[in-house]
């Protein structure tokens, strides 16, 4: 569907994107994830045509669109600020693209109302100014405006970042639902890993203009290819040498010289170790209560680790309590030190 082949983007002397290669499948919800300034929005703007690459090609449905003007690319965009025209009503905002295509009034009216119904906007809301709508409703308008012209792809640039936490979660679900309904290929940009993990079919993790890993949410979370990905996605503990040594002594195929990481939920408190697992004693320093689960900070003597335990209401450990932490070496993700970034494909 969309192929980015060896895309390089430069701003003056600064190289923003280094040989980016991505292949997005038809109907896929594909997310560009990474910290600020990593190149995810630049990649999106290269696809949409706002930025022209120094080298490489952008191919959509086997058509090279690298040098095709923005308006001829047939790509809908939902902007971070939604970019709704403040001097137009909701109806006029949605109809803007159709009017430019010189469609007839009845046809425009039919298409606007149809898409409005699909994104759950009432006739009354159509006649309102965008400033009269809530954040969630504005997002729907932005989606409707992007979809009404029938684009092949829709690109979304952090569309949830301006909303409060509760609304963000609510709209995240609606967004996924809508994408499934429309079946449209979606490219989504975010720096929020939780958003990326819950929404995406596949994720490309960006760092400093490179793609570190492309994979399903499970792949990037549980099988992070690089140290950056494993650190960026979710919370993690880097294990200290004595703990790693203990695992090596127990027969684990780990290297002391590597950087060894383990996810919080992969360690367990006061459980009987199974064969191959090790148990390390420690003291609970503090705990954070999250309702569904509890996060413990445990001092193992050589380091402090964070451990998450399901909140069953029974096994709750007090601060200062002596506990054992069980670690399975198979859950450890190891990276050789000083590993270099390579463009993933």
């Amino acid at each position: 569907m969309i192929k980015l082949n060896d895309i390089v983007v430069k701003f003056g002397d600064f190289t923003a994107l280094h040989n980016i290669n991505v292949h997005v499948k038809e109907g896929e919800f594909f997310t560009f994830l990474g910290p600020s300034g990593c190149g995810k929005t630049t990649t999106l703007r290269t696809i949409t045509g706002f930025i022209e690459p120094v080298s490489g090609t952008v191919v959509v449905k086997d058509r090279d669109i690298t040098h095709v003007p923005i308006e001829d690319r047939n790509i809908g965009i939902v902007f971070q600020s939604y970019a709704l025209f403040p001097t137009m009503t909701v109806y006029d905002n949605i109809a803007f693209g159709l009017k430019i295509k010189k469609m007839k009034k009845p046809e425009i009216d039919q298409k606007v109302r149809e898409i409005a119904r699909k994104v759950d906007l009432s006739d009354e809301q159509l006649m309102k100014a965008v400033s009269q709508l809530s954040g969630g409703q504005q997002q729907r308008v932005a989606i409707a405006r992007a979809l009404v012209t029938g684009p092949a792809i829709i690109c979304m640039d952090e569309p949830l970042s301006n909303l409060d936490a509760k609304l963000r979660v609510q709209l995240r679900n609606e967004l996924k639902q809508m994408q499934k309904e429309f079946g449209i290929t979606t490219i989504y940009v975010t720096h929020d890993q939780e958003e990326a993990l819950t929404l995406s079919d596949r994720i490309a993790v960006f760092n400093k203009g490179y793609i570190e890993q492309i994979g399903t949410p499970n792949e990037v979370y549980n099988f992070s290819k690089t140290e950056f990905v494993c650190n960026f996605i979710g919370d993690i503990n880097r294990l200290s040498t004595p703990v790693v040594q203990q695992m090596i002594d127990a027969g684990a195929a780990l290297k002391e010289t590597d950087h060894n990481y383990i996810r919080l939920e992969r360690m367990h408190v006061n459980m009987e170790p199974q064969p191959g697992q090790i148990s390390v004693t420690g003291t609970v320093i503090t705990r954070e209560y999250y309702g569904l689960y509890i996060k413990y900070y445990i001092d193992l003597g050589c380091q402090t680790v964070k451990v998450i335990e399901k909140n069953d209401g029974v096994r709750i450990y007090e601060e200062g309590q002596q506990v054992s932490v069980v670690i399975d070496p198979r859950d450890v993700m190891a990276y050789p030190p000083g590993e270099k970034k390579e463009a993933a494909s």
Binding site: F50, Q80, S81, A83, F85, F96, I100, T149
Partner: peptide
């Protein structure tokens, strides 16, 4: 003026004058 408004108009096919 939010620069994204200009980008949005461009993306929807509007020329500079429009």
């Amino acid at each position: 003026i939010d620069e994204e408004l200009e980008d949005a108009a461009k993306n929807l096919g509007a020329g500079g004058l429009r």
